[in-house]
């Protein structure tokens, strides 16, 4: 970057972008520590009373644990499935690769509202609607391309000769997979798994469609409460999401480095 004018324009735009990206978080965290009874920013004095309140709110707690369960189911389903698919896509020559791409990108190209309603109808037919685990499976379906991407990116950089060398030394296909291929794609698996967990944790629309009053997850609970009345306890709940996001970003940075997302393909 040489021209000062370009510098100035770009930094102004970036500054604005950073502002609109971070402001909601800052406000939510700030509003959660107010000692007043209405949402206000800057908060009126400091207190943790709203955290006390949500610690006692059973519906919020239960919704939180349900969200955790949904995320765990999502990870349990998507990680093995996505890992195998990611390896298959980058290590094997497959007929009709273009059609495969289109098919496996369906979770992204089909609008969430349609995927959600479609699965609602299918799960209703299968009589599993109203249980919690199908919500996790649904989250795995709609976010599957994320983990396939991250695994296939890792797999593409694995030297094919390493697998051949292992087989040359007498390792069978299973041993080769567990001792050579899997360790090599592990960064992709971990990144993908983390993404799947957090995305399932914050998934809103599909949860809204697949849950009922007895199985609402935390984002849906927050949404329902916002529509009734906005009190600072919601800000405290939202702060939980901020903390989860902070932990996820920190973990992601420690495990693979955030810079990995800047690499060109």
């Amino acid at each position: 970057m040489t021209a000062p004018l370009q510098r100035a324009i770009f930094w102004i735009l970036v500054g604005f972008a950073v502002l609109i990206l971070s402001l909601p978080m800052v406000i939510v965290v700030g509003a959660s520590v107010t000692s007043g009874n209405i949402i206000a920013f800057p908060p009126e004095g400091f207190s943790l009373k709203w955290y006390e309140k949500i610690a006692q709110a059973r519906d919020l707690q239960q919704a939180f644990w349900r969200s955790i369960q949904v995320s765990l189911v999502c990870v349990a389903v998507s990680v093995p499935v996505g890992t195998l698919a990611g390896i298959a896509l980058s290590r094997y020559r497959l007929r009709g690769a273009m059609a495969l791409q289109v098919y496996l990108l369906l979770p992204f190209t089909v609008p969430l509202i349609a995927s959600g309603i479609g699965m609602m109808l299918v799960f209703g037919e299968w009589r599993i609607l109203g249980a919690l685990w199908p919500v996790g499976v649904a989250c795995a379906v709609i976010n599957l391309p994320f983990i396939i991407w991250s695994v296939s990116a890792s797999a593409a950089s694995l030297d094919r000769d390493l697998e051949l060398a292992a087989q040359n030394c007498g390792a069978g296909p299973i041993a080769t997979f567990f001792h050579v291929t899997l360790p090599a794609v592990m960064p992709g698996v971990i990144t993908g798994g983390l993404l799947m967990f957090v995305l399932a944790m914050t998934e809103f629309l599909v949860s809204l469609l697949l849950t009922d009053a007895r199985t609402v997850t935390l984002p849906v609970q927050v949404y329902n409460n916002i529509r009734s009345i906005i009190t600072p306890d919601l800000a405290a709940v939202s702060t939980i999401f901020v903390v989860i996001a902070l932990a996820a970003v920190w973990l992601l940075d420690r495990l693979v480095g955030l810079e990995i997302f800047l690499k060109s393909k």
Partner: peptide, 8 residues
């Protein structure tokens, strides 16, 4: 951070 916080 915002990507992981979710829409709601």
């Amino acid at each position: 951070l915002p990507f992981f916080i979710g829409q709601v």
